[in-house]
Design a protein around this nucleic acid. Structure first.
Lengths: 230, 230
DNA sequence: GAGTCCCTGACAGTTTCTGTCAGGATAATT
DNA sequence: AATTATCCTGACAGAAACTGTCAGGGACTC
């Protein structure tokens, strides 16, 4: 691997980790010594990138480097195709449709050979056997999550207990057998998880909830012990 | 100016001119000899760029080396994030890594407000409960599929019958509980499906199979009644 | 045919690159 | 006040690469 190639790879590695990465880790990934990483960082900074290093922490790439990332490689195409196909099968209608559109947009900017890879991708998603039927459409719920708006739901818990609540939805989690809405529940004044197949009705409200979702997510992660994804 | 620096500059220069540029002009701009420009063009091409030179005309950089800016709506972003996250969780190591890279590359070319949507995406993928442990790494199998090469596998079928076969792998299907390799089996002279968790060994062969995958896929779909996926 | 360019090979003297070793410095954590 | 985890720098020497120069070869346009 030539130096220039490595510099691009380093850039991508820094982009991919969002948290600080130690030079040692990068060295390992790129198969060079730590010293070389230090030197490469200097090279990249000299060329206009902004890589900040802090002792005891690691390196972070500040976005805004003029050079865009390299085109996707075969593996990345395969990953994108597989992911999109999965969403096409398992997402709600709107999301499935969006997955297809996104993939089409991506394909539009690919060079010919990669475009063919998309068409001929050898990765597929099998039909799910146990589709837990959901009474409500999830796309308005996703929209409420995005827009930080409250929802009023009619829910039946695992004991068959029915209730109506106003919740502040913060995330939608996809499990193999079920989909779960994570939310702050106004009734319980705490975070609660609602299985989508047990939500009988969901009425998106116009009212926005008073906290930023970013903050709620963080609290939720801490109190529920949910690791950050990606 | 080091070579790696110059290569980036050269790339920018080629990107900036839309029309063909002569090597002489580039040489002048970068303060090197023409010969060096010729060599640099070779270097860049070796790294995946497509720089076309025509005698009497000059050089042109064909698009498709760097990722151009992309635009997605909220739903599409959500679909891409969800899909990538799923692959990060369920794909083999290499594929998971590729999914992460693909997503960060996309994020890097998004306008600021959309970039934030990626980070704050409210869609998540739950851990899979029943991870069927697989004895072999799937990434070389995927590679064989891409490259249309044969594989030699040691397989135990549902009755516990062991066998060694040479197969022509054409697809890898992801089900909730298992992953399945679809292939033409030389032994049976027919299409067969192999559950990945029952493949004890897989040795990718150098030999390519004599039919195009596109053709095999079509036959497979027809004979097995598999619908086309997007 | 003249003019422009792309493109290649060979040579030889740089120049650069790299890993290794040896410290130093900083900040958070214990 | 240690300890830990980093970043960061300098020096060295062998290995690797890079570079300009020269000498052609070829393709296309005018």
């Amino acid at each position: 691997m030539s130096k220039s190639e490595r510099l691009l790879a380093l850039l991508q590695a820094l982009r991919a980790y969002r948290r600080p990465v130690s030079a040692e880790r990068l060295a390992d990934e790129l198969n060079v010594s730590i010293r070389t990483i230090y030197r490469d960082v200097v090279s990249l900074n000299a060329q206009g990138a902004t890589i900040e290093g802090e002792a005891g922490i690691g390196y972070v790439l500040r976005p805004g480097f003029l050079l865009p990332p390299l085109m996707f490689d075969d593996e990345e195409i395969e990953a994108l195709v597989l992911g999109s196909r999965w969403v096409m099968q398992r997402g709600d209608k709107l999301l499935a449709h969006a997955a297809r559109n996104a993939l089409t947009k991506i394909a539009a900017v690919l060079p010919e050979d990669l475009k063919e890879r998309v068409e001929l991708a050898g990765v597929m998603v099998g039909a799910s056997r146990e589709a837990a039927p959901e009474p409500v459409d999830l796309s308005p719920i996703r929209q409420s999550i995005r827009e930080e708006r409250k929802i009023k739901i009619a829910y039946t818990d695992e004991k068959g207990q029915k209730s109506e609540r106003i919740i502040w939805p913060i995330a939608l989690a996809f499990f193999d057998r079920a989909r779960v809405v994570a939310a702050w529940c106004e009734m319980r004044q705490d975070f609660r998880h609602f299985r989508a197949d047990r939500i009988e009705k969901a009425k998106p409200l116009k009212q926005r909830y008073p906290k930023r979702r970013r903050v709620l997510l963080k609290d939720w992660r801490i109190t529920q012990g949910i690791p950050e994804q990606f």
